[in-house]
Simulated scan of single mutants.
Amino acid sequence: MPEGHSVHRIARQFDRNVVGHRVSASSPQGRFADGASLLDGREATSVRAVGKQMFLEFDDDLWLRVHLGMYGAWDFSGEILIDPTIASANGRMGHTNQRGTTLAADDVVLDAARENSLSSIGAPRVARGRVRMSEQTRGLDEDGAGDWPPPVVGQVRLRLLTDRTCADLRGPTACELQSPDQVQASIAKLGPDPLVDDLAEGEERFTSVVRRKPTAIGLLLMDQSVVSGIGNVYRAELLYRALLDPHTPGKLVPEEVVRSIWRDWARLLVIGVETGQMMTMDDLDDEAYRKAMAHRDERHWVYHRAGLPCRVCGTEVVLEEMGARKLYWCPSCQK
């Protein structure tokens, strides 16, 4: 399931390529035909991401709400414009890791999925081609160039087409039209998002909710009404970074630890948006950082490391099910 950083990057891509343009909307799959007919011919006027949900506004106060869920993704094709808040004008960028080491601006690191980890698709270069925006982000397809508009491939729930850019939505959990009041009601159900809410107010809200809940902290972090955007990877990593047992009831987690989790989430979310990767390792030198960006298994402390030794204490990392999702943690460090 796409976590918060991915959805914020998708929203930025819409802001650069779709907002301010009139769209042709269709539902090639047919499951959103009525909704697409209402969007067809309208101008996209704004976009916002909150947690794992995106809200795209059209004229006449009509909104599109999309939750990608486990399998959803947006495919963009056509002229894909660079987001200047992430990348430089020539489509290349340097990134600063958590320790402050800056890599060269023209470094290119391709991981096993052929993703450019340093200039990934939240800030792609101007190009003709197709990019996939989901948790497993891909780079430009080598055969992406061709006819315009591009042919429909697979089960496309919704296609939004401007004169230069095409956005295809596949496999979402939710794709619906909402009024402004319904949008506000949807957002009101969500916990604070560090990239949306005031950080201090978000910290107080998050801390207050967690500290009165008897529910295990490992479940609370996945509850989108408690905090927005955290998924399976960030849950495991935040708990490890806090050296916290996932089974600890929220009300028994020391207040200073709860606050540190919020602040850590705010920090990691920004890194995720800037790099396109859920990078959770600290204090890496340049070589180790490049290796981590090139290999997903090197980016995390415990996630996806079941049966392997803890990077710190050597204890075998445990895998269990919590909240119907896989949870990775170190029983020695996280006491």
Results as ranks from 00 to 15, higher is better:
208 S>Q: 10
314 G>L: 06
8 H>M: 05
182 Q>Y: 05
116 N>F: 13
111 D>Q: 15
49 A>V: 12
17 N>P: 03
107 D>A: 11
93 M>L: 13
219 L>C: 07
3 E>D: 06
23 V>W: 00
314 G>S: 04
196 V>Y: 09
136 Q>W: 09
200 A>R: 15
117 S>E: 12
254 P>Q: 01
78 G>V: 01
91 G>W: 11
45 T>P: 01
236 A>S: 14
324 A>E: 09
258 V>Q: 02
283 D>L: 05
192 P>G: 03
209 V>R: 05
240 Y>V: 02
15 D>F: 03
124 P>N: 09
101 T>E: 11
188 A>I: 09
229 G>E: 04
312 V>R: 06
98 Q>A: 09
61 D>R: 12
56 L>I: 14
173 T>P: 00
264 D>A: 11
176 E>C: 09
89 A>S: 10
148 W>V: 04
321 E>N: 10
117 S>I: 08
233 V>G: 00
53 Q>K: 01
110 L>V: 08
143 D>C: 05
321 E>R: 12
253 V>L: 07
73 A>F: 07
36 A>W: 05
211 R>P: 00
313 C>L: 08
195 L>A: 04
257 V>R: 15
237 E>P: 03
172 P>I: 06
119 S>M: 07
138 R>E: 07
82 I>G: 04
281 M>Q: 11
184 Q>N: 13
173 T>K: 13
84 P>K: 12
91 G>S: 09
201 E>Y: 09
116 N>C: 09
332 S>G: 08
122 G>L: 00
314 G>D: 03
306 A>M: 02
317 V>E: 00
274 E>Y: 03
129 G>A: 13
92 R>Q: 14
